[in-house]
Amino acid sequence: MKKYKITVYDEKTGEKHTIEIEMSEEELEELAKKLAEKHNVKVRIEKV
Protein backbone atom coordinates (compact mmCIF):
# COMPACT_ATOMS: atom_id res chain seq x y z
CA MET A 1 0.00 0.00 0.00
CA LYS A 2 1.18 3.49 -0.81
CA LYS A 3 0.31 6.93 0.50
CA TYR A 4 -1.65 9.28 -1.74
CA LYS A 5 -3.06 12.76 -1.53
CA ILE A 6 -6.56 13.09 -3.00
CA THR A 7 -7.95 16.51 -3.90
CA VAL A 8 -11.65 16.78 -4.72
CA TYR A 9 -12.88 19.95 -6.41
CA ASP A 10 -16.51 20.98 -6.99
CA GLU A 11 -16.66 23.49 -9.87
CA LYS A 12 -20.23 24.58 -8.99
CA THR A 13 -19.54 25.63 -5.41
CA GLY A 14 -15.79 26.18 -5.63
CA GLU A 15 -15.27 23.84 -2.66
CA LYS A 16 -11.95 22.02 -2.51
CA HIS A 17 -11.02 19.26 -0.07
CA THR A 18 -7.72 17.41 0.28
CA ILE A 19 -7.01 14.27 2.29
CA GLU A 20 -4.06 11.90 2.62
CA ILE A 21 -4.88 8.22 2.48
CA GLU A 22 -3.00 4.93 2.36
CA MET A 23 -4.44 2.26 0.06
CA SER A 24 -3.67 0.19 -3.01
CA GLU A 25 -3.63 1.85 -6.42
CA GLU A 26 -6.58 -0.25 -7.62
CA GLU A 27 -8.74 0.73 -4.63
CA LEU A 28 -7.76 4.35 -5.07
CA GLU A 29 -8.73 4.41 -8.75
CA GLU A 30 -12.10 2.86 -7.90
CA LEU A 31 -12.69 5.41 -5.13
CA ALA A 32 -11.79 8.33 -7.42
CA LYS A 33 -14.12 7.05 -10.13
CA LYS A 34 -17.03 6.67 -7.69
CA LEU A 35 -16.47 10.15 -6.23
CA ALA A 36 -16.37 11.75 -9.67
CA GLU A 37 -19.52 9.97 -10.88
CA LYS A 38 -21.65 10.19 -7.74
CA HIS A 39 -20.82 13.74 -6.66
CA ASN A 40 -19.98 15.31 -10.05
CA VAL A 41 -16.57 16.57 -8.92
CA LYS A 42 -13.03 16.56 -10.29
CA VAL A 43 -10.59 14.29 -8.48
CA ARG A 44 -6.80 14.69 -8.53
CA ILE A 45 -4.46 12.04 -7.10
CA GLU A 46 -0.83 12.58 -6.13
CA LYS A 47 1.69 10.15 -4.64
CA VAL A 48 3.06 11.29 -1.29
Rank of each mutant, 00 (worst) to 15 (best):
V43R: 00
V8T: 07
V41K: 08
L31R: 02
K33S: 10
H17R: 08
K2M: 10
Y4D: 01
E25T: 06
E15P: 00
E26G: 10
T7F: 07
D10V: 03
V43H: 03
H39R: 11
K34N: 10
L31P: 00
T7K: 02
N40I: 06
V8L: 10
E20K: 04
K2P: 15
V43N: 01
I19S: 03
A32C: 14
E37C: 06
T18H: 05
K3G: 01
Y4Q: 02
E30H: 11
A32E: 10
T18V: 14
S24R: 11
E11R: 03
K42F: 01
K42A: 06
I21F: 06
E26I: 09
K16F: 14
E20F: 15
V43M: 01
K12W: 10
T7L: 05
I19C: 12
V48S: 06
I21P: 00
Y4S: 02
K33D: 05
E20R: 04
E15W: 09
K47H: 15
H17T: 10
L31M: 09
A32G: 07
K42Q: 10
I6V: 09
E29Q: 13
E15R: 09
I6N: 00
G14A: 03
E26V: 12
H39Y: 04
K47A: 15
E29L: 12
I21W: 04
K38S: 13
L35D: 00
E25G: 07
K16H: 14
K3E: 02
I21H: 02
G14Y: 02
E26C: 12
E26P: 10
E22C: 14
I21R: 05
A32V: 14
D10S: 03
E15K: 12
K34L: 11
K38C: 05
T13Q: 01
V41L: 14
M23S: 07
R44F: 11
A36V: 09
V43K: 01
E11T: 12
I19K: 02
K42G: 05
E27H: 09
T13E: 02
G14I: 00
I6S: 00
K16S: 15
D10R: 00
E11F: 07
V43F: 01
V41Q: 06
E11S: 05
I19G: 01
E26F: 09
E26M: 11
I6Q: 00
E15Q: 11
V48W: 00
T18A: 04
M1P: 08
E25A: 06
Y4N: 01
H17V: 10
I21G: 04
K12I: 15
I45T: 02
L28R: 02
K34G: 07
K16N: 09
K33Q: 12
K5Y: 13
K42W: 00
E30K: 12
E27P: 02
D10K: 02
K12C: 14
Y9L: 10
E11W: 07
T18I: 13
K12P: 02
E29K: 13
I6M: 03
